[in-house]
């Protein structure tokens, strides 16, 4: 069997919104999903109303709806980023120990997280830069990283200074070891695991160009 990379060189890199749409397309119907704070929340905009996907928020709710507007705003109903949201029909509330038992117990199908760095083997660094003056804050990142059945990361492939954020070994403090299954970026989609990084798709760059930009062993994979 020939393994091929779907190279989309006839277009530019994906925008943030396009990465979110690409992630949403791969989430199975009816899945229980947690979207991390920040960019991953964009994925919600691309989940169809008939997808049957149920959103979990760490602060104790399944069946979370979109951001609240106008009269819908209720200080007692927020998402993990403390932004007011609405509840959907069929929603359920529960306390924090139950909310995190759902994660650790393997009941969540997918979580989507942001990252500072991801290693080819699936290590995740997304909670602390390690800078001496930074105030560390972990929230639910470590629990989600080891808990969900499938851990997906959404990020730009390169930092603002051009250095790749997909690395051989993370230099930032780790959130979880070998926990990331799939990495979606503006330039490519990767499957990660003990065997290293496999590229399934590229955007605005060829597989060979991508391999030249990264300092990790890559293989084509579909």
């Amino acid at each position: 069997m020939t393994v091929t990379v779907r190279e989309h060189t006839d277009r530019g890199p994906l925008s943030r919104d396009e990465i979110a749409a690409r992630i949403a397309r791969d989430i199975p119907r009816g899945a229980y999903v947690n979207l991390g704070i920040g960019q991953p929340t964009l994925v919600a905009d691309h989940l169809g109303p008939d997808s049957g996907i149920v959103l979990h928020t760490e602060n104790g709710m399944l069946g979370m709806g979109p951001v609240a507007v106008g009269d819908q705003v209720d200080p007692d109903l927020t998402n993990a980023g403390k932004i007011p949201v609405v509840e959907l029909p069929g929603a359920a509330y529960f306390h924090h120990a139950d909310s995190f038992a759902m994660m650790r117990g393997g009941h969540l199908d997918v979580c989507v997280l942001g990252a500072f760095q991801v290693s080819a083997g699936g290590d995740l660094a997304n909670w602390h830069t390690g800078a001496p003056d930074a105030i560390p804050a972990v929230g639910g990142a470590m629990d989600l990283a080891i808990g969900a059945k499938q851990v997906v990361v959404m990020m730009t492939l390169l930092a603002k200074d051009g250095t790749p954020k997909l690395v051989r070994d993370c230099t930032y403090p780790l959130t979880g070891v070998g926990c990331v299954d799939r990495l979606y970026t503006d330039l490519a989609v990767f499957e990660l695991g003990p065997g290293g990084a496999a590229v399934t798709e590229t955007f605005g760059i060829s597989y060979d160009e991508l391999a030249a930009r990264l300092d990790v062993p890559l293989r084509p994979g579909a």
């Binding site: 306390h95 120990a97 560390p136 972990v138």
Partner: peptide, 12 residues
Amino acid sequence: ELEVVPQGNLAE
């Protein structure tokens, strides 16, 4: 002083 605890560990 600050002790940072993962959120689920805090609850559990």
